[in-house]
């Protein structure tokens, strides 16, 4: 008989968490430094009930989504421009390639100087995290569109905007989507860094919650927030990017 696939992971998780719980309860470690899973769960429950967790998650998600949307909305046309115009590719394209390798936390000092401890500073960091990956992805996938598609479309009378919207973008979509996914991951990381390192006066996000946990020596809170951060990342992938990618692949038989 074959076991269902989830049995072994569940078993491993139970053993791991059980062992951890036992280890802490048997006072092999100081539970201030390493909280037991039950303590983390309790923090989770309490902060859910008093609204702290939800409001922090909301603040963070709003920043992430707005910043990502701005970054993607700017990145797509800029990437297309890089693909279309040689000298823009040689300038902006190269710049984007360089800035993409820059960890986006590096934007935090600049953002604080320019915008202060404001919402706009966090947004700026998130936008910078998103935009370069998107620019590069759009540029590359547009340049890699099969010439045959363009030739076929052009002989049918397609040109200009029609060619871009009906042929080039649809053909480049898989590459653009994976660039967006990468941009999202960069944005998420840079946002966490910004929220942890900087007190943003305009809203208390997950990063601030995590930072507060450290200051209060509440490791249950620190680990609880870390868990939420992981879950949010997983969920975004599970409910947004993965289904979109799967649909694209299936509908084109890739």
């Amino acid at each position: 008989m074959k076991l269902p696939r989830f049995v072994i992971p569940t078993l491993v998780a139970v053993i791991f968490l059980g062992g951890w719980e036992w280890f802490v309860r048997a006072e092999h470690v100081n539970d201030v430094l390493v909280p037991a899973p039950s303590q983390i769960l309790k923090w989770f429950w309490d902060s859910l009930l008093n609204g702290e967790l939800l409001s922090a998650t909301w603040v963070t998600m709003r920043r992430l989504i707005i910043g990502f949307a701005i970054g993607a909305a700017l990145g797509v046309p800029l990437g297309a421009l890089c693909a279309r115009v040689r000298w823009i590719r040689d300038t902006l394209g190269v710049l984007a390639l360089g800035l993409q390798t820059l960890p986006s936390v590096c934007w935090v000092p600049l953002a604080l100087l320019w915008f202060g401890q404001e919402e706009s500073a966090v947004l700026f960091v998130v936008v910078m995290g998103t935009i370069w990956a998107v620019v590069i992805a759009v540029q590359e996938s547009v340049l890699n569109v099969q010439p045959l598609y363009l030739r076929a479309a052009m002989t049918m009378g397609s040109k200009g905007w029609h060619l871009w919207l009906r042929v080039i973008f649809p053909a480049a979509l898989p590459g653009i989507l994976s660039g967006m996914k990468q941009g999202w991951a960069f944005a998420w990381r840079s946002l966490m860094a910004a929220e942890i390192f900087v007190v943003i006066l305009t809203g208390f996000g997950l990063g601030s919650l995590l930072h507060a946990g450290r200051e209060l020596l509440r490791m249950d809170q620190v680990m609880g927030v870390m868990t939420v951060v992981v879950l949010v990342g997983l969920l975004a992938d599970l409910i947004f990017f993965s289904p979109l990618e799967r649909w694209l692949r299936r509908s084109r038989g890739l």
């Binding site: 045959l148 076929a152 509908s251």
Partner: peptide
């Protein structure tokens, strides 16, 4: 009409 079909997969 090209040698390869050149149909748009989307």
């Amino acid at each position: 009409m090209f040698q390869q079909d050149a149909l748009f997969p989307w």
